[in-house]
Design a protein around this nucleic acid. Structure first.
Length: 201
DNA sequence: GTGCGGATGAACT
DNA sequence: GTTCATCCGCACT
């Protein structure tokens, strides 16, 4: 097991990176409790030119400033006042690309995740969906702007590779507001995996 | 300072 | 299919 290196996150092609993140392992260690899972669903958000991105048009605010930092940091924000959504900041400094992690297959710390999710037994919705997986891993705003090579939240490569026909590209979820960018096929997921989110609409 | 609405999920009918 | 929880980022005044 090895953490993804700094260079991985500098890739300027955010869609390529979103695909490469499938099969990688996302971990958190919070108060000594280790939890983690295999990434099975991602979405690419392409910085200033993407109407679905928080950084569209170069919007630079307290919230979005971390997106402009070096690739390899976390970007966590509160959505609908309830859910924390976790993104990987990518590309070199000044290019605010990010990848939203939307689905995770449980791998480590099942008992802790069940407790955090208030569930008695393992069901797919424990980590299917960006809000759900954040809750299972204990991700909240306290984990915003963290170095992904640190020891609180990080991503590892254990050699798992999905081949091309196991990966599906489709429209991103919940971005109807993005006009002509709403239907771009920048959501990627592992075909048939139970921990891929079920979009509401 | 105010107001709108969102990169959702779960519990309803 | 519909409703609602529940916060704050962001644009505008």
């Amino acid at each position: 097991m090895s953490k993804l290196p700094y260079s991985f996150y500098q890739n300027p092609d955010v869609n390529d990176l979103a695909v490469q993140l499938l099969g990688k392992l996302l971990f958190t260690r919070i108060d000594g409790e280790l939890t983690g899972g295999i990434v099975v669903e991602t979405e690419a958000y392409k910085g200033v030119e993407d109407k679905a991105s928080h950084a569209y048009g170069g919007r630079f605010t307290n919230r979005t400033q971390v997106m402009f930092e070096e690739g390899g940091l976390s970007y966590v924000y509160l959505c609908y006042g309830i859910h924390h959504l976790f993104n990987v900041v990518t590309a070199p400094k000044g290019t605010p690309h990010a990848v939203l992690i939307r689905g995770l297959e449980p791998f480590e710390g099942m008992d802790v995740m069940l407790r955090r999710r208030n569930m008695a037994s393992l069901k797919p919705n424990i980590t299917a969906g960006p809000g759900a997986l954040s809750k299972a891993l204990g991700i909240d705003k306290g984990l915003n702007a963290k170095d992904l090579l640190g020891d609180e939240i990080w991503i590892e490569d254990n050699g798992l590779i999905f081949n091309e026909n196991q990966i599906v590209a489709s429209a991103r979820v919940g971005v109807d507001y993005a006009e002509d960018h709403a239907l771009l096929p920048w959501r990627y997921y592992v075909r048939g995996n139970k921990f891929v989110s079920k979009p509401n609409k």
